[in-house]
């Protein structure tokens, strides 16, 4: 289908974008790889699209005070090739090839993926697994929101209607950082049926403080806390069994809830191996 009618404005700067977003029904346009699809399907009908692609200063990747800051307009392809991300945020580097297809990764942005908060998307889960945070500019100024508090509900985040997500930050990996990532999709690059992003610290036998964050199984990224505890206690089998309590997936077009729960266990076994590897 074709999108409904809307107006279009190119923001010159962050302040200008925030001002334009004051228009009733305005929506922010970044990479557009999710938004324009929803417009074409008439699942959303904004009055105005505020295009932030021309705003400078939102496409940097930099290490600051032990944290890697990734600008909102960094495109997936840029992240995929970034030596800084490979070194300081290896979980994101590992997730990147699973995100969309080549042409989608050329346009889609990291900030857009986080802000859109598709429950089956990879990056929101990575951000939660890493205990990252989101930098937001809005009418009241700038603020930082922890990833744990950012994803509220289905496509709902801590972003207000006039807020612009400007960057994400994650703790830079250290020598004892361990990460794991796996997903199952019917076609490489499609949204996952079930996926798992994980981070932990190496500590002898069992991974310490593991954070297991599933995607495609709920309305937001879902932490599997009982499985985390079992894994920290050294029992992978108990961790897999605990997933039945941690996760409550719904049937969808891709798989039934029972299949998803089973696949979540399969992924946990794969990811647990990755967490053990140095």
């Amino acid at each position: 289908m074709k999108p409904p009618a809307f107006a279009y404005a190119k923001a010159r700067a962050l302040d200008h974008a925030i001002e334009l977003l004051g228009v009733d029904g305005a929506r922010l346009l970044a990479g557009g790889q999710s938004l324009i699809a929803t417009l074409n399907m008439r699942l959303s009908s904004p009055s105005l699209l505020v295009d932030i692609n021309g705003i400078g200063g939102l496409e940097g990747i930099a290490l600051r005070d032990g944290r890697l800051e990734i600008g909102a307009l960094v495109r997936h392809v840029q992240a995929e090739r970034s030596a800084e991300i490979a070194r300081h945020a290896p979980l994101i580097a590992r997730a990147m090839p699973h995100i969309g297809h080549a042409a989608i990764r050329n346009r889609g942005t990291l900030g857009g993926s986080i802000a859109f908060a598709d429950p089956a998307a990879e990056l929101p889960a990575c951000l939660v697994a890493l205990g990252g945070e989101v930098e937001i500019a809005g009418p009241e100024g700038r603020r930082t929101v922890a990833a744990d508090d950012f994803f509220k509900d289905l496509f709902e985040t801590a972003l207000g209607p006039r807020d612009v997500l400007t960057a994400i930050r994650v703790p830079a990996a250290t020598a004892d950082t361990r990460v794991g990532f796996a997903e199952l999709a019917r076609r490489h690059g499609d949204y996952a049926m079930v996926g798992l992003a994980a981070a932990a610290r190496a500590d002898g036998k069992a991974p310490k403080d593991p954070r297991l964050v599933y995607f495609g199984v709920g309305t937001t990224p879902v932490r599997a806390r009982k499985a985390e505890a079992a894994l920290a206690g050294g029992s992978l089998d108990q961790a897999v069994a605990a997933l039945a309590q941690d996760l409550a997936p719904q049937d969808d077009v891709q798989a039934t809830a029972a299949v998803k729960t089973h696949l979540a266990g399969v992924l946990l076994r794969r990811v647990a191996q990755q967490l053990e590897a140095a």
Partner: peptide, 23 residues
């Protein structure tokens, strides 16, 4: 028309993109 099939692929500023997912 929603980014799945790739039939609309074109190049913009040297990289391939979905012609249906850009205005």
């Amino acid at each position: 028309e929603h980014g799945v099939c790739g039939a609309c692929t074109v190049r913009v500023d040297g990289v391939v993109v979905r012609g249906c997912l850009m205005l």
